[in-house]
């Protein structure tokens, strides 16, 4: 159960298992205390304020008062929202994969690895673009830019 609780905190728990964890939290006070201390620990790590004293008590009271029937419905809503997100993510992934593969070999490089002449060409383009915008206060070249090569034909 603790693994599932940990996954829930990281937002990685399967939506179908959320209900199970919530039921356990409602029944098992030790587990609820554990959950609260993990949350507090994480908040400290992130530099956020810690939940006020008595939060667990108030939270468990509200959890008990929550009608059981509501929870599965919420999860269904969650699941419905989760599906488009997953679809979007895989579309994005496919997009990247296709793009990387088009034209042949994949060869992602950073500016540091890029041939000096390639970098000079890119720098020229960026500089000419900046000039067309009329801003001389731009010192950025491609030093920090990532250039993803799609493969040469």
């Amino acid at each position: 159960m603790k693994e599932k609780l940990s996954a829930l905190m990281d937002g990685e728990l399967d939506p179908r298992e959320v209900e199970e964890v919530l039921v356990s939290l409602r029944q098992d006070r030790t587990l609820l205390q554990e959950w609260a201390s993990w949350q507090a620990g994480r908040d400290i790590l992130k530099g956020e304020g810690v939940a006020q004293a008595g939060f667990v008590e108030r939270f468990s009271r509200r959890l008990e008062a929550e009608p059981v029937v509501i929870a599965p419905r919420r999860i269904r809503v969650l699941r419905r929202l989760a599906v488009p997100v997953t679809v979007a993510a895989s579309v994005a992934f496919v997009g990247i994969a296709v793009w990387q593969y088009y034209g042949g070999s994949i060869e992602p490089v950073t500016a540091n690895q890029m041939a000096a002449e390639t970098e000079a060409v890119l720098h020229d383009y960026l500089a000419a673009h900046r000039q067309s915008e009329g801003n001389p206060f731009v010192e950025r070249g491609v030093q920090k830019a990532q250039f993803q090569v799609a493969g040469q034909r």
């Binding site: 830019a145 993803q148 799609a150």
Partner: peptide, 24 residues
């Protein structure tokens, strides 16, 4: 947006880059 076109093959492979909002 600047569009550069030239005859020949400069030493810049097909691909794309990015810094902040600036894309190439």
């Amino acid at each position: 947006v600047s569009v550069f076109a030239e005859e020949g093959r400069p030493n810049l492979p097909d691909g794309s880059g990015r810094q902040g909002a600036l894309n190439v």
